[in-house]
């Protein structure tokens, strides 16, 4: 019974609670009660769908990674904009990226980062989670794309999930 009253995923509960306060236009008694209820009920109901949590994660490295990603998104967006507006045809390529990361959460963070940073979209992960299929909009050669992803994004993530 006590098991049912706990918060199995404290971080998710905290995020849900804070988001609910933002959504409900100012903190009041009602929004706190309803927020607590949601923060308790949603993790309980969705518990079966969540992947295993990483045993160790260096959260404090996250802000630096996020800052780098946001900077890259803005800088490289201008390159894609120039490419879209220029009359020449792009040279797209499908690149197989060999993953060094092993944890599913880390892989999905990497895939999302690749999709958001201009020039590349992650298409699929192989069944054994060793290869990531990446579509590059304008690639001179495959190795260049792989090296760019490895040094800029995968190394920081490897440090985070060690």
């Amino acid at each position: 019974m006590l098991d049912r009253l706990s918060f199995p995923q404290p971080w998710l509960s905290l995020i849900l609670f804070v988001t609910w306060q933002f959504l409900s236009d100012g903190i009041s008694g009602g929004s706190v009660v309803l927020g607590l209820l949601l923060a308790w009920a949603i993790p309980q109901l969705t518990q079966g769908f969540w992947p295993e949590r990483p045993s160790f994660m260096r959260f404090w490295l996250m802000p630096r990674y996020l800052a780098r990603v946001i900077k890259d998104i803005i800088v490289a967006s201008f390159q894609v904009a120039a490419l879209i507006l220029s009359p020449r045809q792009p040279r797209p390529a499908f690149v197989c990226y060999p993953l060094e990361l092993e944890h599913p959460l880390a892989i999905s963070i990497l895939a999302s980062t690749i999709s958001l940073t201009p020039g590349t979209v992650s298409v699929d992960v192989s069944d054994d989670q060793r290869l990531l299929l990446v579509h590059a909009l304008d690639a001179e050669n495959d190795q260049q794309v792989i090296d760019a992803i490895r040094t800029r994004y995968e190394q920081p993530l490897l440090e985070m999930f060690k």
Partner: peptide, 12 residues
């Protein structure tokens, strides 16, 4: 895919 695309999407 357009002409000149390098590589192929894989099948699983």
């Amino acid at each position: 895919t357009m002409e000149g695309t390098e590589g192929k999407p894989w099948e699983q």
